[in-house]
Design a protein around this nucleic acid. Sequence first.
DNA 1: ACTATCGTCTGGATCGTTACAGAAACCACG
DNA 2: CGTGGTTTCTGTAACGATCCAGACGATAGT
Lengths: 369, 369
Amino acid sequence: MSKAARSDTPSGRLTLLTLARDLGVSRATVSNAYNRPDQLSPALRARILARAAELGFTGPDPMARGLRRGRVGAVGVLVDESLSYAFSDPTSVLFLDGLAREVQADGLGLLLHPALRDPAALRALADAAVDAWVVQSLPDGHPAVGVVSSRGRPVVVVDQPALPGVPVVGIDDASGATTAVRHLTRLGHRRLAVLAMPLGCDRRQGRADTERQRSAEYAVMRRRLAGAAAAVAEADLDWADVPVVEVAANEPDAAARAAAELLTGPDRPTGVFASTDQLALGVVRAARDLGLAVPGDLSVVGFDDSPAARSAEPPLTTVAQPLRDRGQRVGVLVRAALRGEEVGVPAPAVVGLVVRSSTAPPPGARGRR
Amino acid sequence: MSKAARSDTPSGRLTLLTLARDLGVSRATVSNAYNRPDQLSPALRARILARAAELGFTGPDPMARGLRRGRVGAVGVLVDESLSYAFSDPTSVLFLDGLAREVQADGLGLLLHPALRDPAALRALADAAVDAWVVQSLPDGHPAVGVVSSRGRPVVVVDQPALPGVPVVGIDDASGATTAVRHLTRLGHRRLAVLAMPLGCDRRQGRADTERQRSAEYAVMRRRLAGAAAAVAEADLDWADVPVVEVAANEPDAAARAAAELLTGPDRPTGVFASTDQLALGVVRAARDLGLAVPGDLSVVGFDDSPAARSAEPPLTTVAQPLRDRGQRVGVLVRAALRGEEVGVPAPAVVGLVVRSSTAPPPGARGRR
DNA sequence: ACTATCGTCTGGATCGTTACAGAAACCACG
DNA sequence: CGTGGTTTCTGTAACGATCCAGACGATAGT
């Protein structure tokens, strides 16, 4: 009979039809053997599956099935620029892990695409076969976001950018930052500084004036800076006097270089709010290299509560956001949208400060509080 | 005319046909406007694209195109167990980055799937729409490997497992390990120990006897241990006397716990070969916690030359393998296979020792060499 | 004995696109 | 004015599956 099968399909490609002809049943029945076991007798199903294994047929073609059913089993993830950045940032890693675990339940994989700006890459995005898109923390107005959201598939945004009618899973960045900076001012710090991730795509670095802050392309940074500014004002200090230093990349190394400069001046800050833990780790390292004790000479507050913050030396005081949870929550929204449910925009999660050992009253202060 | 378009497709779904009817041209022409600009006049093409934008048509449906062309624009990556592991291991991160960069050139994305063993997950793998599969360092006989390789698409394996007729991108693990251990013995170390990643999927940990070593499911570990054994024999030592400790996970924390035990015994080793840098970092930390100086009291050699090895304190002596390059090489093979070229099995790359500051002669040795 | 119901299985239509062969129009040339 | 060669566009046939309405017996209810 395998002879018949061969001669029927000279091409040699194995399809449902091949198998159906070989067994003398209809295509629909073979299809049902794979997709709806209740639609045919167990005996016939067993016979079909056995013969399939014999012939080396491994099941229906994913693309054909995808076309017919309107599903491919993939959730697209649009990650910022290079994948290596997305992977090296622990924040991102935990997020992806949480997301992957959640969507796994429906047999979905993650299709990673970097959000590049050149036409070829944009075309590749438009052509990507996915059931839904997850946009992971991209700057406002990034062209790739437009491309994926115009495809008509469900979209879930993480953190940024805000899109009309699209659910965003995020946190209350502003109040988180306020809490962090307030912690410093309550400890008595009056000379503060802030470290920021890149505010735009122009790779600029160094001191960022208020204009630059307000026009930052990353909404998350805008919000965190605004939150920090609020706490500063609350303490009767002038935000314009607080140096905001933009770091070239969200990495400890880059932050350490930026911080070194900040910490060598005559009236160096006694308290630094680093807007991510990665940056905070760099500040701590820079301080150590300069012979400054943390928290004795310098207090450092981070943001995110990444695993590294916990195991750092000293353990970082930081704003805790539930990293893996976020991934899971995005996954839940994606699955719901794929089931056709109308998903609302969830409220941003509130975040709390975790006080560890990287903060203390400024040197010379007598524990005023 | 937009009225006509609407009434033609009551469903409201926008397809090539919708657009073609609206413009009074054939589907093929619209298709060509997207895929073969040279097949129609620039004027008509512009008209089509303009009207498409007006109507909100974002281009041909990826799945239908996938079915017709036999391509979906995705390279499947089979990663070990949880994605978080794949992401937290720097080795893996750099690999994926290199791979992604390379395949990007053809507009391909990476479809990540964890290699689970339950039937539902295996079914999801079989149903995944990909153009090719990359198997990233899985244990011998993992069922997921069988599933993806039986799909009839090109497969490229990284490191392990060896599959008949399938190209493997890997390194000469054995000679790398030999070099590493030889470095220790040449320095004069006689009391050695070895740390190994998990050797099987049974989550076992602790001392691994030679039987366990030989039957390790991970070929990479088998080879590295064999290489280490060769160097030990070369130095007239008995491999059976060298404790090989299996660590529960390839993470510094787990390694530190395992090492702590190893370093507290009466005749503790003076030289440790950690079979990955992650493990080596853990050993260094454990030593520091016990008040042992590295390399003064204890020499540690790693494997991989991950970024962390370079910036560690002290910088690690390690076996260097070109991590991002590997990803790129895999990408090149995948692209070639997708172009229909016959790809051969490349020879494993040779690796060299990078001597940094985590190794020195054993305490009490007078610089014999 | 005559429907009603159920469990199985089939045939044809359909998903939205691209490949391919060929038709129509146009140009230049002898 | 026919001839050959482009350029530009069209119609039809796949691609490989799933969905749906119904056919066909067999069983059961009345």
